[in-house]
Amino acid sequence: MPELDFDPNTIRKSVNVKAAQEVAWKVFTEKMAKWWPLAYYKIGKANAVDAVIEPHVGGRWYERGDDGSTCQWGSVLTWEPHSRLVLSWDINADFQYDPNLKTELELRFIAEESDHTRVELEHRHLDRFGNRRDEMRRIYDTEGDWGKLLEAFARVAEA
């Protein structure tokens, strides 16, 4: 990342995928369980078996547990198949939507020649995680779930 661009509250990533734009979009939005690290990035008490994005603005983004329970992660802010998707992460202490807590995740799917797609990711307003952390702590302190998530993240960051 160039220093001039450095915004401490935004993460930008880009990945080149050997798949058509439509395929990339579909795998991202409809087959999240195939690639999302559900084993350690989840919120609920049950084992998460799927992550679902409801395909319209205002749709929910949630995990589904093996006991049928669901836990919302956020919602769809922008839905422009097959090119642009903006999601919010807005989990508060009651697992309810709270516009004051959300961080934003934007995905752009850019078609390139011969069925290649560049996928750009921007995760912004990271300073708002501070609030979320305190609330999550209140819930999980006794079980240590949050601690495990922190450790998992730290391991990834240090790898």
Partner: peptide, 25 residues
């Protein structure tokens, strides 16, 4: 340090996404 967490998380998660999308293709 705060960013690094998520930064690493997205690297891994996008790599997994890439593999899944290419498999689907």
């Amino acid at each position: 340090a705060l960013r690094n967490w998520l930064d690493g998380f997205w690297d891994e998660t996008l790599a997994a996404f890439k593999a899944a999308a290419e498999e689907e293709q």
